[in-house]
Design a protein around this nucleic acid. Structure first.
Lengths: 348, 348
DNA sequence: ACTAGTTGTTGAAGCGCTTCGACGATACGC
DNA sequence: GCGTATCGTCGAAGCGCTTCAACAACTAGT
C-alpha cells in the first residue's frame, strides 16, 4: 500500500512525468492514445495525486473552508442542512470541506488563508457588526458570507430575503383583514449575539406594517422551551385587542413551543387568531398542526452561496454576479391564518 | 498581503532557513537567543507556514478526516454535538478537521488516505456489516470508529456501552418491582441501515430481561413523528397485562413523540406506567415532563475517540490503549419510573 | 523544396517546507 | 595542551507535483 507517485504512473505508461501531470490537469493537449495509456496506468496503480504537493506546486488546494457557529451552546439545529448542502456541493466540484468553528474568530480565517489550507471560505453566523468581516475582506482568497452584516465590506453575501419575508407576512395579514399583529421576538441567544437577520427582520416588519397601517407589537423574546412560550402566549392573550389578531413567529425554534402553549390554552390558530411562522416547509408541514409558513430554506441558501463561491474561484466569461444575493421567500398557506371575511362583511 | 515564507523569516532573523524550521518543529536544539529572534521575526511578518509544503516535506498534514452520515434524510440531529466536540478536540491539538460525508463510502476513505489529505480518520455511523471497515483497516493511516461493527477488523472502536445500558434499564425496572417491560423498537431509518447500536441494544436487553425473569416485548418501531408514536402507544396499552409496566425507549428521537402520545391519552409516566429513555441528560432534563434516562453523551464518546486517535498518532511510552472503548452509561432518575412498592406490599 | 506553423511530448526548474550530514565553536577530561 | 564530546547552526537534498521553455515530428503554405 506504499503510495504511488505520478512518476510511477509515468514509468508504467511509458511517458514522462510531466505528461502525466498534463493528463490530470488538462492544461495542454495530449493525444487520445497517450491519455488512455496514462489513465490506464493510474487505474492499475489506484493512483491518487498527493494533495500537499499539488497545493504547493499549483497554488490551489481544492478545499473550501467552512466557518460554522459551534460556539453557542444553543441547539443550533438547522445548522446541519447548511453543512450538508455545502459539503455535497463541494464534493460535486471535487472540493473538500475543512471545518472551522466560529469561536476561533478572525484567527481561524487568518490561519485558513495564511497556511494556504483552502482556496476560498464560506462563513456563516454573521453578526451585525462582525469584526471578522473586515479581516475576511482583506484576505487574498474569496470569502462568501451566509448572512448580511451591516457593512459587507465588498464581500459577497447570500441569505434569505428577510425584508421580503416581512413584507409577505404583513401583506398576508392585511389582505385577510387583520386588525392587529404581534411579532414574537427572537430569543436572547440570538439577540445577544446580534445576529444579523434578527434586526433585519424586525426593522422590515415594523416598516411594512406601518406602510400598510397594521398596528404591530413586538413581544418579548420567547426563550426556547415551554416556559418562555407560555409567558409569551399569556402576554399576547392579555394584550390583544378585540378583533382579528395575527401572530408572526420569525424564529423557527420558537414556533413549536408556541403552538404547544396555544394548544394548552385551547386557542386554535386559524380560528381564534392567525399564525405565520418562518421556517422550512418541511418543518411547517410536519408540525402538529401544520402552520402557514414563509419558507426559509437552508439548502437553497447554501447552494446559492456555493455557486457564488465557485464563480469567484473561476469567474468565467459571464456578466458577473450580484454581490448580495437574497433568496426570495415563499408563503405556503396551511390553515393557521384565518381567511378573509366575506366581501359582504369586508365593506364595513 | 503576499504570503511570507520561512526564507523571509530567516532573512529577517539573520539565520538560515533550516534554523527557522527547527524552531517551528523543535526537532533540534536551538539556543534561546536565536529562538527568540526567529519567533520575533515570525510575529513581525505574521508568518504562517504553508500547509501543503509541510505535508509534502514532513509527511504529516495536521488534519483529521471526519466521516459523518449526512446521506440519510433522517433528522440526524444529535450529530452536531459529535462534530462540535471532535472539531474542538482537534483544534486543541492544532489539528484541522476535514469533513467527508458517509455517502461517499469507501471511496472517500481511499481519497483521504491516497491523497494524503489527513493523518488519521474518525468514522461515524458504523453499520453492523460495514464494507468500509475492511477498507479502513487496510489504510496506511489510523482509523477510529465511533460505533461497533460486528467485525472491527482490528480497528479501535469507541461507543456507548449499550449492553450496560440494557442491563441498567432492566435492573432498574426489576428492582422497582415491575412485572413486564416493553421496548420501543428503533425506527426503520435506523434498522434499514443496520446501524450497529440497534442490534446490540436489543440483543442485550432481551438477554438481561431473561436473566432477571422480566417478561419483555419489543414493539414495532416508532416512526418519527406523531402518528408512529400514537400507534405504538395504542399497541402498548392494548397489550399490557395488568400490573406494573415499564417502557424502555432506546432511540432518543422517539422519546418526545412518545411522551406526547402518552400525554394525549392521559397516561402519566411514573404513575400509570414507567418510562426510561436513552438520551443525553440535557434532553431528558429539558423534556416536558423530564424523564428518567440512561445517559448517552455524544461529547464523552467523541472526546474518547479523539483521545484514542491522538494516541494512535503518537503512542507515547504508556502501556497502551484498549482497542474497544465503551463509555459507561449512567441512570438518572427523574420520576418517570414508579417507585418500588412499600416493603409490606413487596413481600407478596 | 524550404520556411512557418501546429501538435504532442519532454526535461528541468521551482513551490516552501523537513531533515540529514557536516562543520565551527565551545566545554571537558587528563 | 590535545583529543573528544556536546551544542548550535547551516547547506543542500529531497518531498511530488505544476508549468515553462524547448524540441521533435508532422502538416501547410508558397
Amino acid at each position: 500500500m506504499a503510495a504511488f507517485t505520478s512518476k510511477d504512473v509515468a514509468r508504467l505508461a511509458g511517458v514522462s512525468q510531466s505528461t502525466v501531470s498534463y493528463v490530470m490537469t488538462g492544461k495542454r493537449q495530449i493525444s487520445e492514445r497517450t491519455r488512455q495509456r496514462v489513465l490506464a496506468a493510474m487505474e492499475q496503480l489506484t493512483y491518487e495525486p498527493h494533495a500537499g504537493a499539488r497545493a504547493l506546486a499549483g497554488r490551489r488546494t481544492q478545499v473550501v473552508g467552512l466557518v460554522v457557529p459551534f460556539d453557542s451552546m444553543s441547539e443550533m439545529t438547522g445548522l446541519l442542512p447548511f453543512i450538508e448542502t455545502i459539503a455535497s456541493s463541494a464534493r460535486a466540484s471535487d472540493y473538500e470541506v475543512l471545518l472551522v468553528t466560529a469561536d476561533e474568530g478572525s484567527a481561524g480565517l487568518r490561519r485558513l488563508a495564511g497556511r494556504a489550507l483552502c482556496d476560498a471560505i464560506i462563513m456563516m453566523d454573521i453578526q451585525e457588526q462582525d469584526e471578522r468581516v473586515q479581516v475576511a475582506a482583506a484576505l487574498p482568497i474569496p470569502v462568501v458570507l451566509v448572512g448580511m452584516p451591516d457593512d459587507p465590506a465588498g464581500l459577497y453575501c447570500v441569505d434569505l430575503d428577510f425584508d421580503a419575508a416581512a413584507r409577505i407576512a404583513v401583506d398576508e395579514l392585511v389582505d385577510t383583514g387583520h386588525d392587529e399583529a404581534f411579532v414574537i421576538g427572537y430569543p436572547a441567544a440570538v439577540t445577544d449575539r446580534r445576529l444579523n437577520f434578527a434586526g433585519r427582520f424586525l426593522r422590515s416588519v415594523r416598516r411594512h406594517a406601518e406602510m400598510r397601517g397594521l398596528p404591530l407589537t413586538v413581544l418579548e423574546p420567547v426563550e426556547l422551551g415551554r416556559a418562555g412560550a407560555a409567558t409569551a402566549v399569556e402576554h399576547l392573550l392579555a394584550h390583544r385587542r378585540p378583533g382579528r389578531t395575527g401572530v408572526v413567529v420569525p424564529y423557527n425554534a420558537s414556533i413549536r413551543p408556541l403552538l404547544h402553549a396555544l394548544g394548552a390554552r385551547a386557542v386554535v390558530p386559524g380560528r381564534d387568531l392567525s399564525l405565520i411562522g418562518i421556517s422550512t416547509d418541511h418543518q411547517a408541514d410536519e408540525s402538529e398542526p401544520p402552520y402557514t409558513n414563509i419558507s426559509e430554506e437552508p439548502r437553497d441558501v447554501s447552494r446559492r452561496a456555493m455557486k457564488t463561491l465557485f464563480w469567484l474561484l473561476d469567474p468565467g466569461p459571464g456578466v458577473g454576479h450580484p454581490p448580495v444575493d437574497l433568496v426570495a421567500p415563499r408563503l405556503t398557506r396551511r390553515g393557521t391564518v384565518m381567511p378573509a371575511p366575506t366581501s359582504a362583511m369586508r365593506s364595513s
